[in-house]
Design a protein around this nucleic acid. Structure first.
Lengths: 342, 342
DNA sequence: ACCGGGACACAAATCGATTTGTAGGCAAGG
DNA sequence: CCTTGCCTACAAATCGATTTGTGTCCCGGT
């Protein structure tokens, strides 16, 4: 027999009071006599009554849920972000609905639509294929929205980004101190000329940071030292191979992420060269694995957990402050961690 | 000015019809004349109307959402599971609410309660601290529930497990072929005697499988070759060190997971020994990193994506079939992948 | 001319909670 | 003795959609 869950009306009837009184007993918004409250609690226990949050949400126009949109939760970087977001919001009573977009615009759009329809109280998103203004046009002006992004222009949402330039400046200075001044860089896939709409990719941002850091150290960055590749170990292997077979082979290679750095290390070994003796390698992100490979990877710490925590905290502030408070932009610092590969 | 989102009533008014007609035009449950439908669609476009899914859920008693409860999404194993679950359910219109329990009973209980109150249509859970019957007592008999677990006893829910014994048998046979018959095993933390209520831990299950495999290969498993440790790299390091400093030092070490295997490899190196020349090491899980360490780790593939996909598929079947269909139990095979460490 | 049956649209009930208006009972104060 | 006000509890409206019952109009068949 399909006994449906009990409703507040069942409780009211069993306790010999009205639903109103039960509601007030639970919420405390109006006084209920001690005797009545006692009776209600007993009935609730006995029937194992649990309030229907869907009904509550409909009435209160608040779902206590937020959406987290990332490219791919199975990537090494996102789980730490997701975990921190989860913890930050959970303690305030929010649950997280997670969406994987694979960086595809239509998936991002579909998810945003769906989340708006579901009435989430806020959205944390790493936009991959959509412009900020397009995101806003879907979610509306008042939806609390935190972007995990590097956007420079005018703000249409709160933003949490990482200060990639800082860690990169550290790294470049460190390399210069070791007299490794002719730095090569493995960036992300080549991308169509930046429209104002689109966000810059990590590869582009980090390349620019290297350029600037080299210059400010008094060095000279050579454009033929840049290789483009996919953000994978294979991409790194190919880019690394090209940098090593050139007539004037690279002696220091920095990479836009750790996965590529692992591929570069493969390429160096395949060329029969030593790390860091012949070629020094520096990564970016400091995924768990960076500390496990041999030699252990010198890299720049990209603090995923901090990004997640800051995103959650900012979203909560936005929900509390309303849509008219000025947008926040926060930069999480990055820093170099020296291990064995450079 | 705070312009609230449009409701079906707004659409009806603007189109000069009743809300009923708009609903029927959208759902197709009853006929609506072509002209009227056309007009309604235009208004919907113009107002950018999107149905409120909370209201829909209240009426239909279906939220098109499922909960995924794991110990820690930031662990290396779960993201792949989560991703597969997400994909399997998303294509059927479900969203996933994710909960991290850290393996703590009270967090598991709290989350289950919350998800029931939120009216999720199903739950996929890796129980860590709760017994199955306790889980059932919270979620109720009719809630579609898929457990990612190894439970042997009577079924109270659908179960997806991995056939750890199979990959372990492969591995043991492989080692015996190389004449490595005196196998040591690094298991998980020592645990109080099993109550019938509690589920067996991976460490216990895998240790038992090794014992059995050794016996069926005609070998003899020695109990002093077992070390207990936490499922971490540090745990593996300590357990490995103990196995190596013993008078009769181990020459083959299998581990309950890859992280421990990495720690064991550290210990072997710290002892100045070669892998696999002096000591062969075998892991379990095949996390991404297993293929990145030096030497590359020989391990047993624990197919997280398959587990996730099977969980999602099973949950969908359960939702379709209702609570009275017999429970399913599915074992995902594991297999050995030979690389360099053994 | 009458009846049967589509086709089409609307009103009202429903899902389960919250919130507001109101009313009865009782005590204190003028 | 009557007013004022507090305490307590209930009835009804509300959130936004779906679903069912009902009614009207119009066409074709006899």
């Amino acid at each position: 027999m399909m006994t449906r869950a009990h409703s507040i009306a069942d409780v009211a009837q069993a306790a010999g009071v009205s639903a109103t009184t039960v509601s007030h007993a639970l919420s405390g918004k109006r006084a209920v006599s001690a005797a009545t409250r006692q009776r209600i609690y007993e009935v609730i226990d006995r029937l194992d009554y649990r309030p229907n949050l869907v009904a509550k949400s409909l009435r209160s126009q608040k779902t206590n849920s937020v959406a987290l949109l990332v490219a791919d939760i199975a990537n090494p970087y996102y789980p730490a972000v997701a975990r921190a977001v989860h913890d930050g919001l959970n303690s305030e009573g929010y649950v997280s609905i997670i969406g994987n977009t694979d960086g595809e615009a239509h998936a991002e759009r579909r998810f945003l639509q769906e989340m708006v329809s579901r009435g989430v109280d806020g959205i944390i998103m790493q936009p991959a294929a959509m412009s900020v203004s397009e995101v806003r046009s879907i979610v509306g002006r008042v939806m609390p929205l935190v972007l995990i992004a590097h956007e420079r222009g005018s703000l249409l949402a709160d933003q949490i980004g990482t200060d990639d330039a800082r860690g990169i400046a550290d790294a470049v200075r460190y390399l210069f101190d070791k007299d490794l001044t002719d730095i090569a860089f493995v960036s992300g896939p080549e991308v169509e000329p930046l429209t104002t709409a689109r966000l810059a990719t990590p590869g582009i941002i980090r390349l620019a940071a290297v350029r600037k850091a080299v210059k400010s150290c008094g060095g000279k960055f050579r454009d033929n030292r840049v290789e483009h590749a996919t953000y994978t170990r294979d991409g790194g292997f190919e880019a690394g191979s090209r940098l090593l077979t050139a007539f004037d082979r690279a002696r220091v290679i920095m990479c836009a992420n750790d996965l590529m750095a692992f591929g570069v290390m493969d390429a160096v070994r395949a060329a029969g060269l030593a790390i860091p003796g012949d070629v020094a390698v520096v990564g970016f992100d400091d995924v768990d694995t960076a500390n496990l490979v041999t030699p252990r990877l010198t890299t720049i710490v990209n603090p995923a957990a901090q990004v997640g925590a800051a995103s959650a905290a900012t979203l909560l502030r936005r929900i509390a402050a309303g849509p008219d408070a000025p947008y926040e932009r926060q930069l999480i610092p990055t820093h170099l961690v020296v291990r064995e590969s450079a």
